[in-house]
């Protein structure tokens, strides 16, 4: 019987230095943060991170894990500029900056196993003056010059879902699935953390089919991680933790601040994290944010 259950550390052990890793979710929503914290505790280094950026980016950058960042934005939404990301960027972290939609096309190209997809996006901007970009001429009568968005193949994609079974059948129950399916299709291997690991019938797939991110053949490993997206949201299970995001952002103010944050919330380990943030009851009761 197929069994893809793993621990967070098992997943980390599947990764290696220098890999290109895609992290799912969007800004402060449904990021696999428990897994990101496990990455911070590991010896992994020189990663290329591909992300619709939230606190995953700042944490990995602050811990010195990144060699390169592929991004279109990094935002904590209510605190729009993440000081950890800013510090890394201003110290010269190597980046490829994309348009959000171009990002989607790069993942789609990797998923399709084609080297690029053509678009108008980027014409007239500095985005396409980055060395990674080429243009391509339409072979049809229009002869139009277009931007060739390079494929963004991933060695691994790390995603957070609401429900999964041991075989890797997954559900993301939040109202916006973002681009996690494309991340999965662009990756050689996909590892998910899940709020709840359940027997297959409890997925109630007949009624939840629209929340089924992708087929299980894409999924290599599943780790149960309750509140594993915290401090980002995993609605409808829980909302983002604005107070914690502020603590995280404030920890960039000094080296001591970061050391303290790291000790309290990262090095404490996954088993004690929930206590460190005030317990399950507090997270479950977080109010819906105002946009």
């Amino acid at each position: 019987m197929l069994d893809k259950r793993m621990t967070l550390d098992d997943i980390v052990d599947q990764l290696s230095d220098g890999m290109t890793i895609g992290i799912g979710g969007w800004a402060t929503r449904r990021k696999p943060m428990a897994l990101v914290r496990a990455l911070l505790r590991s010896r992994l280094k020189d990663l290329t991170l591909v992300s619709y950026g939230g606190p995953d980016v700042g944490l990995l950058a602050a811990a010195g894990k990144l060699r390169r960042l592929v991004f279109a934005f990094v935002s904590l939404d209510h605190y729009p500029l993440d000081p950890h990301f800013r510090a890394a960027r201003q110290e010269g972290l190597d980046v490829l900056e994309l348009d959000e939609g171009m990002f989607h096309l790069g993942l789609r190209a990797a998923a399709m196993r084609v080297p690029f997809l053509p678009t108008h996006i980027g014409i007239g901007t500095d985005i396409i003056r980055q060395p990674a970009f080429r243009t391509v001429r339409s072979p049809y009568e229009d002869g139009e010059e277009l931007v060739a968005v390079p494929a963004l193949p991933l060695d691994a994609a790390l995603l957070h879902v609401h429900r999964a079974d041991a075989l890797g059948n997954v559900l993301t129950l939040s109202p916006d699935p973002f681009f996690d399916e494309l991340m999965a299709r662009a990756a050689k291997r996909v590892f998910v953390t899940t709020e709840k690991l359940v027997p297959t019938p409890e997925l109630d797939m007949a009624n939840n089919a629209r929340f089924n991110l992708c087929e299980r053949a894409l999924i290599s490993g599943v780790a149960e991680a309750p509140f594993g997206a915290h401090p980002t949201s995993a609605t409808p299970d829980y909302q983002l933790d604005l107070g914690h995001l502020k603590t995280y952002a404030d920890s960039a103010a000094s080296p001591e601040g970061w050391v303290d944050y790291r000790a309290r919330f990262i090095d404490v380990g996954a088993d004690h994290y929930l206590d460190a943030i005030g317990g399950a009851g507090r997270v479950a009761a977080l109010p819906k944010p105002v946009y």
Binding site: A72, P80, L81, R86, Q90, E91, I121, T125, I127
Partner: peptide
């Protein structure tokens, strides 16, 4: 761009929106 004085959000969807 390689070593900004001040890093902000990133280009977001601006390039695509504009064309």
């Amino acid at each position: 761009h390689a070593r900004p004085k001040a890093a902000m959000l990133g280009a977001r969807g601006f390039p695509g929106n504009s064309v």
